[in-house]
Design a protein around this nucleic acid. Structure first.
Lengths: 211, 211
DNA sequence: TCCTGTGAAACGGTTCACAGCC
DNA sequence: GGCTGTGAACCGTTTCACAGGA
């Protein structure tokens, strides 16, 4: 029974891994928790606590062997193998995401781009052809898609999510400003740009008032 | 000296406000903390705690008067007046953000779109013309821009951020996968899509393993 | 000596439970 | 009776401090 890992820990692990891979490229042999703390925007103690939840990867007095720790972190995060994803919504956000090179670099393979708009269906996006969202279930099943990026209007998000889940998708990156209801075996990450802007508005307002 | 307000509280306030404005439109006169809890994906007690940090807005036995609370929340969050923003980076993400109608609906007025690419400078985006990022400081000052959306490559993000801050910007929505260093009077919200995907990867991997 | 791994303490956010007002 | 506002309890995360191995 694995203990609960907090969301903030997971985010920091991403940062550690990014730093480790940069160090790997440079041929740095070992790093200290202090080095990783800088990458993760945290403290050395926090880094060690984070890592200790998964095992003991360092050597006292020495630090951590970069290739070994990077490999272990990739395994822990499930990034030691590619993920097959599908992009639903071929609007502007969808187009930007599809062109975003870092997804592919990180091992997220886009198996399909889907939309409901007849104007968009059939368009060529690089080597990908936009397909009909009516075929969502079949495509997810046939191409073994495990994650879906939802870049559809809020009004369609829940329905598309339900269908994707029923076809076997287990992770959803949701750009629609809606709280999706999904079964517990499914994970959802929400990206809500208006909330981010409103949080900035709050912060700035508070700083302007309170000092 | 206002007490610290947690980030999670701020996000919930956004949700409460969205629900309140929907209720306002429908002419609902009062709501309970339980109603708001549903909007914010939390509990009634949490709603009351959140609100209590800013004052007492409800009536015991009655609930909260919708228009009054909505107005107070807009004031608290600094959403009772428009915000002037600028968009730096006229690539695909920038283009998607510029077309995103919810920013404008929510009172975020885009005063400029900037890029360094001569091909893009001069392009017409609706009624906006893409301008040269070399004029960033002048434009921020002249048009009283307070927030900047950074949709530029990671390699340019810090430099653009520094220049925006020096010209008077105080909020940054950062899409570049970099941790920006800014003075304490400046607030930054990061949107890091790879981290969101990696968090999904972690979750799914963990669920598949642990049960 | 250097730096990790880890219990213990401190902190902050959430939940509980109830007093108080409508 | 119903629902808010809030101190107190609870719980998870972060920080501290140090024991222990290289």
């Amino acid at each position: 029974m694995p203990p609960r890992i907090s969301d903030s820990t997971v985010r920091r692990l991403s940062h550690y891994l990014r730093g480790l891979e940069e160090a790997e490229r440079r041929g740095v042999p070992t790093v200290s928790s202090q080095d990783m703390a800088v990458w993760g925007g945290t403290t050395a103690a926090q880094v060690r606590k984070d890592l200790s939840q998964f095992g003991s990867f360092g050597k006292r007095g020495m630090g951590y062997a970069v290739p070994r720790l990077a490999q272990r972190l990739r395994e822990i995060m499930g990034l030691d193998h590619p993920w097959k994803i599908a992009l639903v919504g071929a609007g502007r956000i969808g187009s930007a995401l599809h062109a975003y090179p870092r997804f592919r670099e990180r091992g997220f393979q886009c198996m399909a781009v889907l939309d409901s708009d007849p104007e968009k269906i059939g368009q060529h996006w690089g080597s990908t052809v936009v397909e009909d969202v009516a075929d969502l279930e079949r495509i997810i099943r046939e191409r073994e898609v495990r994650m879906v990026i939802l870049a559809v209007p809020a009004s369609a998000a829940q329905e598309v999510a339900d269908r994707a889940v029923s076809a076997g998708a287990r992770g959803i990156l949701n750009f629609a400003p809606t709280r999706l209801r999904v079964p517990p075996e499914v994970s959802v990450a929400n990206v809500n740009l208006v909330i981010e802007m409103e949080a900035l508005s709050f912060d700035l307002t508070r700083k302007a008032r309170g000092g």
